[in-house]
Lab assay of single mutants.
Amino acid sequence: LQLFIKTLTGKTFTVEMEPSDTIENLKAKIQDKEGIPPDQQRLIFAGKQLEDGRTLSDYNIQKESTLHLVL
């Protein structure tokens, strides 16, 4: 599923993930694309901070959802 990642600077980029992927996987993918170390990434969806060990489906993140990346 394609997700939109929006940064505080207003930049938006996309990543391609599976619902079974963990937040950790997502942070690694963001590191590949943007060079931001996972330990500096905080991801927010629907007002909640996402925890590394959980999956996208745990948070009911669907295709074309927008996640906010806070550094």
Rank of each mutant, 00 (worst) to 15 (best):
L1D: 06
L1C: 03
L1N: 09
L1T: 04
L1Q: 06
Q2R: 04
Q2T: 07
Q2K: 09
Q2C: 04
Q2P: 07
L3Y: 04
F4V: 11
F4G: 03
F4N: 06
F4T: 15
I5Y: 01
I5H: 00
I5C: 01
I5Q: 00
I5N: 00
K6Q: 13
K6N: 12
K6A: 13
T7Q: 07
L8P: 05
L8N: 05
L8G: 15
L8C: 05
T9H: 10
T9Y: 08
G10E: 05
G10Y: 05
G10P: 02
G10L: 05
G10T: 03
G10H: 05
K11S: 15
K11N: 08
T12D: 12
T12H: 08
T12N: 08
T12L: 08
T12M: 06
F13V: 04
F13T: 03
F13G: 01
F13R: 01
F13S: 02
F13N: 01
T14C: 04
T14H: 07
T14M: 10
V15G: 00
V15W: 02
V15F: 07
V15S: 01
V15R: 00
V15Q: 02
E16V: 13
M17V: 15
M17R: 01
M17L: 10
M17F: 07
M17D: 01
E18V: 10
E18Y: 15
E18M: 10
E18P: 05
P19D: 11
P19Y: 06
S20H: 12
S20L: 13
S20V: 14
D21L: 06
D21P: 01
D21Q: 12
T22F: 07
T22G: 05
T22L: 07
T22N: 06
I23L: 09
I23Q: 01
I23H: 01
I23M: 03
E24C: 04
E24D: 13
N25K: 11
N25I: 09
N25Q: 06
L26V: 14
L26E: 00
L26F: 02
L26H: 00
K27C: 01
K27V: 02
A28P: 01
A28S: 10
K29P: 00
K29Q: 13
K29D: 03
K29W: 13
K29M: 09
K29H: 07
I30T: 01
I30E: 00
I30K: 00
I30C: 02
I30L: 06
Q31F: 10
Q31G: 09
Q31C: 04
Q31P: 01
Q31D: 09
Q31E: 10
Q31N: 10
D32H: 08
D32P: 02
D32I: 05
K33M: 15
K33T: 08
E34T: 13
E34Q: 12
G35D: 10
G35N: 07
G35A: 06
G35R: 05
G35S: 09
I36R: 03
I36F: 07
I36E: 02
I36K: 02
I36C: 03
P37K: 11
P37Q: 11
P37E: 10
P37T: 09
P37S: 12
P37C: 04
P38S: 13
P38T: 13
D39F: 15
D39H: 10
D39S: 06
D39N: 11
D39I: 15
Q40V: 11
Q40R: 12
Q41V: 10
Q41C: 03
R42V: 13
R42E: 15
R42A: 14
R42N: 11
R42Y: 15
L43E: 00
L43K: 00
L43D: 00
L43N: 00
I44Q: 14
I44K: 10
F45V: 03
F45R: 03
F45D: 01
F45Q: 04
F45S: 03
A46D: 12
A46P: 01
A46N: 15
G47V: 02
G47I: 02
G47K: 05
G47H: 08
G47L: 04
G47A: 04
K48R: 10
K48S: 08
K48V: 11
K48A: 14
Q49S: 06
Q49H: 15
Q49R: 05
Q49N: 14
Q49E: 12
L50A: 02
L50T: 03
L50W: 01
E51W: 03
E51P: 02
D52H: 08
D52T: 09
D52A: 08
D52N: 15
G53W: 11
G53I: 12
G53L: 06
R54Y: 12
L56Y: 01
L56S: 01
L56H: 01
S57M: 12
S57W: 10
S57Q: 09
D58Q: 12
D58S: 13
D58P: 01
D58L: 03
D58I: 04
D58A: 07
D58K: 03
D58Y: 08
D58V: 04
Y59I: 03
Y59K: 01
Y59G: 01
Y59W: 02
N60V: 04
N60P: 04
N60D: 12
N60H: 11
N60R: 06
I61Q: 02
I61S: 03
I61Y: 02
I61C: 01
I61H: 02
Q62W: 09
Q62P: 10
Q62G: 11
K63R: 07
K63L: 12
K63I: 08
K63S: 15
E64K: 06
E64Q: 10
E64I: 05
E64D: 08
E64W: 13
S65Q: 06
S65V: 15
T66G: 03
T66W: 12
T66K: 05
L67I: 08
L67F: 10
L67Q: 02
L67Y: 05
L67A: 04
L67H: 02
H68W: 05
H68I: 11
H68C: 04
H68V: 13
H68T: 10
L69W: 02
L69A: 02
L69S: 01
L69E: 01
V70Q: 11
V70I: 15
V70Y: 12
V70T: 15
V70H: 14
V70E: 13
V70S: 13
V70F: 12
L71S: 10
L71T: 12
L71M: 07
